[in-house]
Amino acid sequence: MTDPLADQLARLPAAALGAVLALGLVLVLAWTASVSRGVAAGRAVPASMAHAPAEAARLLRQGRRTTLSADRLLWRVGGWGLFPVAVLLIALVPVGETALLPGSLGVVWANALDVVVWALVWLLGWGANSVAGLVGGYRFLALALGYELPLMFALVAPAIAASSLDLAVVADAQSSLWYAVWMPVAFVAYLVGVLGFAVSGPLAAPVGSEVSDGALAELSGPDLLVVRAGRHALMGAGAAIAVPLFLGGGSGPWLPDAVWVVLKALLLTGALAWAAGRLPTLRTHQLMEPLWTILLPLVVLQDLVVAVLVVSGS
């Protein structure tokens, strides 16, 4: 009886170290996204780099705004939950030998975690008991239904090609050719999904400026800080998951695997955040048709093509 427990306890220090590393990686990725966002918005690079620390200092000094009859519990759960979801996503990514949370179902877990964002963003909008917040929360659910199905089918494509739901196996299966190259539609749909759950770029309507930042409208101080950091972190985590899924995981010349994974994640995060900063926010009802009638069928077609190729190849 004591042996398994002792075993578990012996693994604790390594797990703790891994958790700290994952947290650090999430922070670096989030900061990268923030810098890239700043550059896209026309700020100089040094100013963009200083932006996140300065805003953190400003918001940490700021007090809490209270709204009438807010559902404070749900509101805080929604806000403070985003960042941990990003950390859990990062923990699924195989870096070097293994992931912090390895498992044969990494792809499905990634999907389950991004669905948690649905609940969190809606709660964020709901909890504040304000019109702008509610509008933002509902906009998010409408968009989420639109981007989530293409995202799910996009996740299916690499899993079919590698015949595994394990992120490490999927990464290893791409030794000859990155999946991003021969399944581009799935890759694009996945990136759209990442923009969706990071609530940015063309899919930023739930926090749209034209409704006073929607779901973020009533947030202030540290509560706002964690949500902003959480959005950047989710973008970084989404990019990091794309590395084993579509970008060949740790494969690359000269450098060790772990370095390649981090490097690819940083580059993709930067590119994604820059694009998100440059692309206009589209109105929710304008996005519904392209997401449902163009992207979704295309991704399903992509899955079919991948499946046929895999079957005929084997």
Partner: peptide, 19 residues
Amino acid sequence: SYLGVIVVLMMVMEMAVMA
């Protein structure tokens, strides 16, 4: 594992819509 994670995925999604 598969059924467990599917339950988590489906139900969080469904409850978001249910709300």
